[in-house]
């Protein structure tokens, strides 16, 4: 263990460590805590200059209700769901197959195809922007959720393939060899032997991709325009111009927009971190 565990240090050090933890956390999350505080304040607090003090009355319930009743926020949230969920399913499905192909079979172009996926995953979005927007326009999918979903699936397949292939590489090869000796066809090996073993990888990837796609902003503004199609990251801009200078409302709206991935993270923490830190340990 490094650094030295505090249990082995003097009582004074232990006590100060335990006191320091919450302080450090408050400092770390200060900007967010400020916004959380804003979101439960009534409008009058802002006009009377009571910015960082306790709310003069608890208006959290009212503010958050208004986000859902007085704005297009529910629509944006729904769009986000309809963009994110199909992308997760599509990208994970495609990459289970590509990861299997690249992880199990030995053929000459294997490594080059793998590198293509890895390299593509690091490419700056801007180099794709003009052609992808044009392609989406030509397919008649500009300003549709489907257009956005198709692109996201394709792009995320790069990262997902990297992830799945490395995961499958680490599985015991004997299982596959044994099945082959038994005369099981390759497709059945994929479906009945490998896929069940990939469950942890599928879970980890799903949570990660959910977060990435939910939080995407760039492609949302490039490929969609209005309230009918835009996800919440893009919609929050429209929301903020509706409630210009109403900081309690803008704060509540931002917190709502940020919440789904946060909940996903706290519910699926183990998978999330396993996915994110793949490769951080040898």
């Amino acid at each position: 263990m490094f650094p030295t565990p505090v249990e082995k240090r003097s009582a004074a050090i232990q006590a100060s460590y335990k006191a320091l933890l919450p302080l450090a956390l408050i400092l770390w999350l200060l900007p967010l805590l400020m916004v959380a505080l804003f979101s439960i304040k009534p409008d009058s607090d802002f006009t009377q200059g009571n910015l960082w003090g306790l709310p003069s009355s608890f208006a959290g319930f009212e503010n958050y209700t208004r986000v859902f009743t007085d704005s297009a926020m529910p629509r944006y949230l729904l769009n986000s769901v309809f963009i994110t969920v199909p992308t997760v399913i599509g990208a994970v499905a495609l990459s289970c197959m590509t990861g299997f192909a690249l992880g199990v079979y030995r053929f000459r172009s294997n490594i080059w195809i793998f590198f293509m996926f890895v390299a593509g995953n690091f490419v700056p979005f801007q180099i794709l922007m003009v052609p992808v927007r044009d392609l989406t326009l030509n397919m008649g999918l500009y300003d549709t959720r489907l257009g956005l979903v198709l692109f996201h699936i394709a792009f995320q397949t790069g990262f997902c393939t990297l992830f799945m292939r490395n995961f499958i590489r680490a599985l015991p090869r004997e299982l596959i060899e044994a099945a082959r000796v038994e005369g099981v066809s390759e497709i059945r090996i994929f479906w009945y032997v490998v896929l069940p073993l990939m469950r942890p990888a599928i879970a980890a990837l799903s949570v990660l991709i959910f977060t990435f796609i939910w939080n995407d902003y760039f492609w949302a503004v490039v490929l969609t325009q209005g309230v009918e199609t835009q996800p919440v990251t893009a919609g929050i801009t429209a929301f903020n111009s509706q409630f210009r200078a109403a900081y309690h409302m803008m704060s509540a709206g931002s917190i709502i927009a940020a919440l789904p991935p946060v909940m996903m993270f706290f519910l699926m923490q183990k998978h999330f971190i396993a996915g994110l830190t793949l490769g951080a340990v040898k």
Partner: peptide, 24 residues
């Protein structure tokens, strides 16, 4: 088998990522 499994992934990736780089 590997090509069968790779086909959909490569097709998507080529259309939306690889070709656009050259087009740009």
């Amino acid at each position: 088998a590997p090509w069968l499994f790779l086909a959909p992934g490569i097709a998507f990736f080529a259309l939306y990522v690889v070709f656009p780089i050259f087009q740009s």
